[in-house]
Design a protein around this nucleic acid. Structure first.
Lengths: 197, 197
DNA sequence: GTCTATAGTATGATAGAC
DNA sequence: GTCTATCATACTATAGAC
């Protein structure tokens, strides 16, 4: 199983951008990991922004795969949403160390006023639309997008504080709350539960 | 009213670190804003990390002042917590553009593995302990710290998504939910409301 | 496709004149 | 206290040999 140099670069960049941030990661650093010279680098990517876009595209396709697998695996919308909530627990160690890969990338690109922010944002939109559909299937037609955004925001906040305080246990506490929150929205109309956000 | 060059540097850095991020902001950039030469800079601060620490200390003292004013102004713990929630609305324009100054700084320092992360974290801790005290006064003795962390996380998530989607309206929606959430915790024991997180 | 060599720029930081 | 000049380093990026 041979993996192309290009893919190796994307994989390494994906990891490094997550762990060290985009700007802080240099060509030299990526080249060192992939074990190619800095000069050879430019055969594969002309600019650093090109790598960023490739990494975002890579993450988008991985995310799409994940959402599709949840779609197949989860028998009810509730179970599918639980799959989303559970990535916080599954990745708690990484999140504690580096935060959420989507949220921290977008935050950085916002500050850099980077043109690829919109591209990175598609990662959020992917989750947003997927969650929205699940909530619609639960009967929350009008409220679905708000609920999706609410759940995304809760997840982001959990990731931010977990990494700031370097606290894994906090994730479990909050995920527990999230699951209780979700159960209140299962098999209920959006009207009757408006107050329980 | 003369403001010292040192203070001018701290003010400018505070703003620039917030808007552009710490690493992305250079001495040259700060010097340009303050209108001093890059060389003169080193009379006031020996290293860039020294400025960061000064900025964090500055933010800590400003935050302390704010919390004390809420303490005096707010007649009930509920009102004081509402003051906290309302900074999201008050600063919604800045938050939309640059996120939360505390959260985004900590996120960046986490990625940089920067020694001043602990110092920056004191900003979170300041809010955390203050909120914890308010929840204790509301009768939630055992749950107070969890509630404080929960509220902090909710705020962080709101700020992150608002800036990622460049959406101000989302802040108002979520703040509305937060206020409903808070009202459920006013004059109630922690037991009876455990399920309404 | 991979390498070395190197250009050009910006950075953090220092020395010393005024 | 403020300035100019300068250094060493790291970076993105290019040119050209193999």
């Amino acid at each position: 199983m041979n993996i192309s140099k290009r893919e190796q670069i994307i994989n390494a960049s994906d990891k490094l951008f997550y762990q060290q941030g985009f700007e802080h990661t240099s060509f030299a650093h990526i080249a060192k990991v992939v074990k190619i010279s800095r000069g050879n680098f430019y055969y594969h990517f002309k600019t650093k922004d090109e790598i960023l876009d490739a990494v975002i595209s890579y993450r988008l396709s991985k995310t799409n795969e994940m959402l599709e697998s949840w779609e197949i695996k989860g028998e009810t919308p509730e179970n599918r949403i639980r799959s989303f909530i559970n990535i916080l627990v599954m990745n708690r160690s990484k999140i504690k160390n580096y935060g959420c890969p989507v949220g921290t990338l977008c935050s950085e690109l916002v500050k850099l006023n980077h043109p690829s922010l919109k591209h990175a944002n598609e990662l959020f939109t992917l989750f947003r639309l997927w969650l929205k559909r699940q909530f619609e299937l639960l009967g929350h037609k009008k409220n679905a997008d708000n609920l999706a955004m609410h759940l995304l925001a809760r997840s982001q906040g959990i990731a931010t504080l977990s990494s700031a305080f370097h606290d894994e246990k906090f994730i479990k506490n909050e995920v527990n709350d999230l699951e209780i929150w979700l159960s209140l929205y299962v098999n209920s109309t959006s009207k009757s539960n408006k107050a329980v956000l």
